[in-house]
Design a protein around this nucleic acid. Structure first.
Lengths: 249, 249
DNA sequence: AAGTGGTCTAGACCACTAT
DNA sequence: TAGTGGTCTAGACCACTTT
């Protein structure tokens, strides 16, 4: 037994009862009091034990179930879930942090030009081959060191306000942290691995043939038309994706 | 307007009222009826409009907030969130799928042996340099083609049941899909990019110097002791991480 | 003061599982 | 039949923001 788990709910606390109870149960599981496969006390028992209403207990169980800590089975009970690697989720917080740190982060516009769509671009942006797109290359530096190289094709349509907004160098910041583009409905993202080309290595000041992560994106507007296709290149010694799976206290 | 959104809740449906209302609001947002930054109707208005109790509306708002679709601000209202790239989450479903498909997936044990810990291993597993570990190499093939190369160091402790369990080739399956190890409390995972070595390329039947994803893991038991350190190598043409961000209908 | 979200109650009724 | 989770109600009270 490593640490005592508080056993009651403090009604005078600023932390709401449901959050307190969720933490109590999660800590009990983390401490090994309830092991994977074990059944938790029934909801009625938890109501009596902690002096809260059924609705509040229900909410707590829902929270723990969403966190992947337990699984509730109707008619049988609520059980502690074993570790499941497939539920691990990696997020882009590291990327977000770079753009949030406005003092230390600089976005350099390397190139903007009109480019006519080849077959690949046309397919990604649902255009005809030969139609105009806007091609943008950016280099993102953090603390004086280049960390990301971004290339992007935007649909060219003078009627669309998004084009002007996207051209602004600051738009990337909004895209990562929110509050930016409000004309985008959704994006499809893919991560894979790549080897730096000579050009990429030079810009990113990395040795040639270094391994790098590649984050590809397509963004869609509210009419479900693609408006942007592009990708970030990120040497894997500068940015990693990390996460934890299982019980976090 | 692309599609009509059902405007009432069907009380005779098997789908609970809260789920129906969440879908109604999400579809209205997806259809552009409410745009990023817009305020949703107040909870009291939603109660009257859809004939449900405050608790049910509350639950709906919570669900949409968890999904990152809206943000509720006390005293002000509930607002549609703009697209935020930083909230994108990549999961390991692709990996999970491989192991779930038991017919088509074969795990080959390439090597098991006792290895004494060098400085790097000792640090990862919280051991002294020179202590014994179990070194395992596995090749995972799907539909006759190798997709993953796994190397792993396990702490060597005859008293620990985990060791025997981990040695079984089937244990990877349980780890990914759940129902496996119940002695593991949590894992720390990292994804980065790497270039295949000659040995890796040969085993994975890929050209040398190909880019690959590398998924590193450390697993901890309920005493918070590390029990396993290892990594999967996965050529990026065989497995990608994909996700979507924003509104999904 | 009025309107907003946030928490919580004390039940009701239902669906499902085990015995 | 008894016990389990799952949904839902009709309020209450509170904290916060806006006017």
């Amino acid at each position: 037994m490593r640490q005592d788990v508080p056993a009651t709910i403090d009604r005078s606390s600023y932390e709401p009862a449901y959050a307190q109870l969720a933490n109590i149960l999660r800590r009990q599981i983390a401490a090994g009091i309830f092991r994977p496969g074990d059944r938790l006390p029934s909801e009625a028992q938890l109501c009596r034990r902690y002096g809260v209403s059924p609705m509040t207990v229900r909410r707590v169980i829902n929270i723990l179930a969403e966190q992947g800590v337990v699984v509730a089975e109707q008619g049988r009970g609520t059980f502690v879930k074993p570790l499941e690697l497939g539920t691990a989720a990696f997020n882009l917080e590291e990327f977000q942090r770079i753009f949030r740190d406005e003092e230390q982060t600089k976005v350099t516009l390397l190139e903007i030009r009109i480019a006519s769509a080849d077959e690949r671009i046309a397919q990604k942006l649902a255009l005809e081959v030969g139609q105009r797109t806007i091609y943008i290359r950016r280099l993102i530096s953090h603390q004086e060191a280049p960390v990301l190289y971004h290339r992007e094709y935007l649909i060219y349509d003078p009627k669309r306000p998004i084009v002007e907004a996207e051209l602004e160098v600051t738009s990337l910041r909004g895209l990562f942290n929110g509050g930016g583009e409000s004309t985008l409905k959704r994006g499809e993202l893919t991560i894979d691995a790549t080897v730096l080309t000579k050009e990429e290595a030079q810009l990113l000041q990395a040795p040639e043939a270094t391994a790098a992560l590649r984050l590809e994106h397509i963004f869609y507007d509210f009419e479900d038309h693609p408006v942007s296709w592009g990708w970030f290149i990120c040497p894997s010694d500068r940015l990693r994706l990390t996460t934890t799976v299982g019980i976090q206290e």
